[in-house]
């Protein structure tokens, strides 16, 4: 039997890798993919909790998270398309209109 803490540890490590990717990368597409990585890390821990505590609420939450992730990816990529049409830049440090 795999202990619950291993799953939480795996989830924490993957979440952190996603966070590092979001902070250090310049490409907005990779940053959006890092967000998906973080959401998946949270899903792993929720499903593990749901299994070990024998309660369905964790899995219900995962379904809602997947819904929100799909909506977020669609909106984020649409923003990216609009940005690329107007500025033809996908790097965060090349976009600084709002910098004072």
């Amino acid at each position: 039997m795999v202990p619950l803490s291993w799953y939480i540890g795996l989830s924490a490590i993957v979440f952190t890798i996603g966070m590092i990717g979001f902070i250090i990368r310049r490409n907005i597409i990779i940053m959006l993919m890092s967000i998906e990585l973080m959401l998946n890390a949270v899903n792993i821990s929720l499903v593990a909790f749901s299994h070990y505590l024998q309660d369905f609420r964790g899995q219900i939450f995962v379904i809602f998270i997947i819904t929100v992730a799909a909506a977020e990816a669609a909106i984020g990529l649409a923003i990216l398309v609009a940005l690329f049409k107007n500025k033809s830049a996908v790097h965060t440090d090349e976009i600084m209109e709002m910098k004072g």
């Binding site: 619950l4 803490s5 939480i8 540890g9 924490a12 490590i13 979440f15 952190t16 966070m19 070990y52 505590l53 024998q54 309660d55 369905f56 609420r57």
Partner: peptide, 20 residues
Amino acid sequence: VMTLTVLGIGKFVPGPMGQA
């Protein structure tokens, strides 16, 4: 952040069991 989270795992106290 990873160090803090992994160190905190040992303090986890599971809640009551559900029905499923």
